[in-house]
């Protein structure tokens, strides 16, 4: 579904990602681990087109999308959420989801009826809100809901485009452990045909969600495999200083 081949990004002499090759199958849930500065978000930015790779290729659903701009990749089925919320703060929860659905359904350029009131848009809004347990807050402005809800909405906006692949950049960033666990239960309940690539710092939560785990360190893939294998990796323990001994 999503593949990178020898993806390399350097800023001058500094290699931020180096020769990254990944292959995600349809419906796979892969978690990317790595310390700060490992190149995780830079990898995401290359996948979505926000940063052009120095070399290498990105394949989405069998098509080479390396040269495509951000919007075209999104229309091809690649959606993402951000580490820092990029919500439409002045709008309601429903309008946030509605804008995403409206654009994804090709109604974002038309004149005529209100794009947010189209039945298909409304249907998507209600479905996604139900999936993320936001149905009771549809009319609330983003500024009126809790931080945890905003993180859920951040993922919801990506989900409302009905993508093939969602890249989630630390979806539980800044929320407490209890809430993060609830959040991951929500992710686990998403349709199994949806491919998820998730950057996560919390090791326990990563193992709870992941089908496969990739570890980046200094821009290089140092581990790529099943969670069970990751638990026994001495290299990973070295990188994380044993922080998942209890996982």
């Amino acid at each position: 579904m999503l593949e990178t081949r020898n993806l390399d990004k350097s800023f001058g002499a500094i290699h931020v990602t180096r020769d990254v090759s990944l292959k995600l199958e349809r419906g796979e849930r892969r978690v990317i681990l790595g310390p700060n500065g490992a190149g995780k978000t830079t990898l995401f930015n290359q996948l979505t087109g926000e940063i052009a790779p120095s070399s290498g290729r990105i394949i989405l659903d069998g098509a080479d999308v390396t040269a495509l701009p951000v919007a075209q990749r999104a229309r091809a089925g690649l959606s993402r959420s951000y580490q820092k919320n990029t919500l439409f703060d002045g709008l309601s929860v429903a309008d946030n989801l509605g804008l995403a659905a409206m654009v994804a359904q090709g109604r974002g350029m038309g004149l005529g009826r209100d794009g947010l009131l189209h039945p298909e848009v409304r249907e998507t809004v209600e479905e996604v809100a139900a999936q993320l347990r936001l149905s009771d807050h549809l009319d609330a402005r983003v500024s009126e809901i809790s931080y945890g809800m905003r993180r859920q909405l951040e993922v919801g906006v990506a989900l409302a485009t009905r993508p093939k692949v969602i890249l989630m950049d630390e979806p539980t960033s800044g929320v407490g452990p209890e809430m993060a666990k609830g959040f991951h239960d929500l992710l686990a309940a998403l349709p199994r045909d949806l491919t998820l690539l998730i950057i996560e710092h919390d090791i326990d939560l990563a193992f709870a969600v992941a089908d496969t785990i990739t570890v980046l360190n200094y821009g290089e893939v140092v581990f790529d495999g099943l969670p069970e294998a990751a638990r026994g990796s001495s290299l990973l323990k070295e990188i994380y200083l044993g922080s998942w001994e209890d996982a």
Partner: peptide, 26 residues
């Protein structure tokens, strides 16, 4: 215009151009 899909997209762009682009909007 402002109530149409185009107008709603414009409001979205005003709020977060980066996000609208990431959603697939030119």
């Amino acid at each position: 215009v402002l109530r149409s899909g185009l107008g709603r997209s414009l409001s979205g762009v005003h709020e977060s151009e980066q996000r609208m682009r990431a959603l697939g909007l030119t």
